[in-house]
Simulated scan of single mutants.
Amino acid sequence: MEHPAGHTGSVGRYVIRSKNGGRIEILFDTYGKGRAKLWIAQQYAGPLLNAGIEVHAYPASHIYKTTDEGTRLSYGRHSALKSMRDLANADLVRFTIIRVDQLEVILDQLLDEV
Score class of each variant (00 low, 15 high):
45 A>C: 13
105 V>K: 08
92 L>C: 06
14 Y>Q: 14
29 D>G: 06
113 E>Y: 05
42 Q>G: 04
111 L>C: 05
105 V>E: 12
1 M>R: 12
33 K>G: 13
50 N>W: 14
82 K>M: 11
13 R>Y: 09
107 L>F: 10
56 H>N: 14
10 S>D: 07
60 A>V: 04
113 E>N: 08
18 S>I: 01
64 Y>G: 06
69 E>Y: 02
100 V>K: 15
65 K>F: 02
26 I>Y: 01
96 T>Q: 06
63 I>G: 02
10 S>G: 06
54 E>H: 09
114 V>H: 04
113 E>H: 07
79 S>I: 01
35 R>L: 13
3 H>N: 03
15 V>I: 15
95 F>K: 08
80 A>N: 09
51 A>F: 06
114 V>D: 10
89 N>Y: 07
104 E>H: 07
97 I>C: 03
100 V>Y: 15
4 P>W: 15
90 A>C: 06
71 T>E: 10
79 S>G: 01
63 I>V: 07
25 E>L: 02
73 L>E: 02
4 P>M: 10
78 H>R: 08
103 L>P: 02
37 K>W: 00
75 Y>R: 08
95 F>E: 03
26 I>V: 15
71 T>R: 02
16 I>A: 10
23 R>T: 10
16 I>F: 07
45 A>W: 03
16 I>V: 14
46 G>R: 15
77 R>A: 02
49 L>A: 10
100 V>C: 10
27 L>M: 12
98 I>M: 11
29 D>S: 05
46 G>E: 01
86 D>T: 11
13 R>A: 04
59 P>K: 09
76 G>P: 05
8 T>K: 12
111 L>I: 00
19 K>S: 07
83 S>Y: 13
87 L>A: 03
39 W>V: 13
71 T>I: 08
86 D>Y: 13
32 G>T: 02
75 Y>G: 09
37 K>Y: 00
68 D>K: 15
108 D>S: 15
72 R>F: 11
103 L>E: 09
70 G>Y: 05
96 T>N: 03
28 F>Q: 12
59 P>A: 07
50 N>Y: 15
79 S>F: 11
95 F>N: 05
10 S>I: 10
108 D>W: 00
110 L>F: 01
9 G>V: 14
17 R>Y: 04
28 F>I: 14
110 L>C: 08
103 L>C: 04
47 P>A: 15
42 Q>D: 04
15 V>A: 09
44 Y>V: 05
33 K>Q: 10
30 T>A: 05
76 G>W: 01
62 H>W: 00
85 R>M: 03
55 V>K: 03
74 S>R: 14
110 L>N: 10
59 P>E: 11
19 K>F: 10
1 M>P: 14
109 Q>P: 00
72 R>K: 15
